[in-house]
Design a protein around this nucleic acid. Structure first.
Lengths: 236, 236
DNA sequence: AATGCTAAGATGTCAGACCAATTTGGCGGG
DNA sequence: CCCGCCAAATTGGTCTGACATCTTAGCATT
């Protein structure tokens, strides 16, 4: 019984890829931001003229990649904007204990973080420098006031990453932080974690301001050494 | 109306997570290696007592993470052994053009690669050193004989990554290479790509042999500088 | 023994139904 | 008029069954 030729001539290969691409394209074209809600599965289904299971498998794909999140009864939400051209690079880390995973990740982070600060020292514009200093001042203010500074510390480092004018640094380092926040026993939030690294933030800023790449590397290493010691201490 | 208590008492939360965990556990317990075939969907279905769609969504999850691969009509195959405890860290990279992506990635790679070589210089055992030198000798032999050495060059660097005793270095750097091999116009394989970096491989080895971390960093930087110049030249 | 064909088995997709959680809107009481 | 409660609509989660398509292996023919 001839289903006549084809309204949808695409059965060629890989409908799944087509759907993930279509989803990514929609996200891009609709200018969706993190937190925005995506169309319901049944809407996508009729819009793309594919079965619901196909839609769901595409959603699961992005879910695994940390791009979207589903909330039962509510909808699916965007976590990180993507496009069809986005390159996904999933890493799998196998270690015995969490402590080991943390330290190994820190070792890699040391390489990336040092390079980021060196590049920032070389490529930063005056505007970048102003932003970094603002975040540093805010961080120091909060630190002195409350004795600790979680979000402000992060903001300071992110400002440095942005000063590299290479988005990969921010994406990589931010994602590494996030991943371990998931596995961390949140309630810990030790008030004194990495507190000893506090003074090196100002010296790191000075190095970047002076465009002194080697000094920037030195100061970054000092900060990370404190982090390493504290991780070893806490997870003992 | 009592469906009586429960054959499957688990509807609690997250059946999907349960299935991915079950799959990961099976992979671990069955000692599956890369390339091995997993049970058919319908087998898993009856074994775990869940619907086929649930199984498929779990498979799609691992597929997105690069853990398994499905071949229509054949089966699903394991790419990277995992366990329930495996930490997955998906990275998403957004860049404009390929040239830009290559250079930005290289910038990050410089950080990681330098750190890897420095750590290798510090932590390498004598056995690691022997392996590295074997790969170096083979690479030099092929290079002199054929004028180029793609796989042998890779093997040399992988041996260095392994000498760090931190699996993350190998995973990250190998994955970065792989990812761009996908997007590369394969036919390129320019015979002279990075050829000028050839002599620095021996000096890098000497630095690692001498446990001289700073020298290892210097030689690695020289290699990567050649790579950067060649990328700029070729993608012009 | 080599070859070609068929059937079994696998994944890929679609459709329909029901469940459970959330959201929404209307209704009634304050 | 406002607030709170409850029911209906919406939405993701799962199961079942069916069919298509590709792969593989075994069988029969030459």
């Amino acid at each position: 019984m001839s289903d006549r030729p084809v309204i949808r001539p695409l059965p060629a290969i890989d409908r799944a890829r087509q759907v993930t691409d279509a989803l990514a394209d929609y996200i891009k074209s609709a200018q969706l931001k993190a937190g925005d809600r995506l169309p319901a599965e049944r809407e996508l289904m009729s819009a793309l003229m594919v079965g619901r299971s196909t839609i769901r498998e595409a959603i699961r794909h992005f879910q695994a990649l940390g791009v979207i999140e589903t909330r039962k009864g509510s909808g699916t939400y965007l976590l990180k904007p993507v496009s069809k051209a986005t390159i996904h690079m999933p890493l799998s880390l196998d270690t015995g204990h969490l402590r080991e995973a943390l330290l190994q990740t820190l070792e890699v982070r040391r390489g990336i973080e040092c390079e980021a600060c060196m590049v920032a020292a070389r490529k930063r514009t005056d505007k970048d420098l102003i932003l970094i200093e603002q975040n540093l001042n805010e961080m120091e203010r909060v630190h002195i006031e409350k004795g600790t500074s979680g979000p402000e510390d992060l903001a300071f480092h992110l400002a440095i990453y942005d000063a590299t004018h290479n988005p990969l640094f921010r994406q990589l380092l931010e994602q590494m932080r996030e991943t371990f926040w998931q596995f961390w026993e949140h309630p810990f939030e030790r008030e004194d974690f990495a507190r000893r690294s506090f003074p090196f933030h100002r010296t790191l800023f000075n190095a970047i301001a002076a465009r002194d790449t080697e000094a920037a590397r030195e100061e970054t290493l000092k900060i990370l050494e404190v982090v390493e010691e504290d991780i070893k201490e806490m997870s003992k």
